[in-house]
Design a protein around this nucleic acid. Structure first.
Lengths: 186, 186
DNA sequence: CCTCATTTCTAGCGATGCTAGATTTTCTAG
DNA sequence: CTAGAAAATCTAGCATCGCTAGAAATGAGG
């Protein structure tokens, strides 16, 4: 079984290479620049190889990249939330969330602007999403039905996208975070 | 000059027909279904005619549709804001904003998920955008630097998208609006 | 060395956005 | 009313896209 293991490992490695390359290309030039031909070229193979690893094609690749993004975002948010709820935790969580979205715009795009078909790894994404959501709730110290957390998430999500779209000036972010912190801790 | 006027009017009419058809097709089947061939077919002409009216191609068509969306959204928000600021105005504005986004998802998508190149009708969109922004500020009664309004806008924008993406349950919206109204009027 | 399964590639399909050049229609002027 | 100019429209095609069937290369076991 050693050889089979080696083969499986090679397969896993190339799979990961595809994901890493796709993500890097997306961050460099946007998802539209991640074409099957360019991606295949970048990993030193031809297009059909991609479909051997990801039968769902580009969509499945994006979705898998997005899944990693959910994990990372949840981890970052959880780490920022820290122990107790309160203004400090809310501010830290907001910083972490906005920072993540700004640092990985294409990844964030794959996570949230991709239609969800409830097929590929949907449940995993859902679990990671909930983990991040819980971190927000923890920072708020919410005990209700989650409406406040949903509102906080909405604000962070919307702010991320509007900043990225250039609809809000970057230098005003501290003011927005202060405003958010104040309004979400009362 | 009557004949020249008649010609200009025919041109304007067909231009509007292209926009209306594109918008309807987008709302019916999404923007990816709005292809140059299908759109040309739908208006009874061939592809190059589209480029006669919109040299920028599909992008310019989407942008022009989006511009109308900005106007409509600003009008709806202004109408909802009414006279005085206060909880009622904030709730009404939120309802109006979320209702508009939910009722015209593809239009909203064109408005905010389309990259802005600062070329096509950018300044008009900016003006309408500011008008809607001012309506939000009026509902809040804000007099500061706009941070609170930006935060409100972020929350509404994010909530719209998360609802559309199915990340938030529709039936919880009243709770979210209540939460928002409470936190934005203190 | 041969066989056979796996891996990889070649070549192609239909569809996309877009455009150059031919063709038809419409308007104008004599 | 008609001939020619101008405008509007179409035909046909390009490069690129995501994706795939079938041929060729590769590698392991007998």
């Amino acid at each position: 079984m050693v050889k089979a293991g080696a083969r499986a490992q090679r397969v896993a490695e190339r799979r990961q290479q595809i994901l890493d390359t796709a993500r890097a290309m997306a961050e460099a030039d946007g998802w539209t620049a991640v074409t099957s031909r360019r991606l295949a070229d970048a990993i030193g193979y031809t297009q059909p190889v991609l479909y051997g690893h990801f039968p769902g094609g580009k969509t499945e690749i994006m979705r898998t990249v997005a899944l990693a993004g959910f994990t990372e975002l949840a981890a970052a948010t959880r780490a920022a939330a820290g122990g107790q709820p309160g203004p400090q935790a809310v501010a830290a969580v907001a910083e972490a969330y906005l920072g993540f979205a700004a640092a990985n715009p294409s990844l964030y795009e794959a996570m949230f602007q991709l239609p969800i078909d409830a097929r590929f790894a949907q449940e995993d994404a859902e679990a990671e999403l909930r983990s991040g959501f819980d971190a927000l709730a923890a920072a708020l110290g919410e005990d209700g039905d989650g409406a406040a957390t949903e509102l906080l998430w909405s604000a962070l999500h919307g702010m991320s996208l509007l900043e990225r779209a250039g609809r809000m000036r970057q230098e005003h972010r501290p003011g927005r975070i202060a405003e958010l912190t104040a309004r979400f801790t009362s």
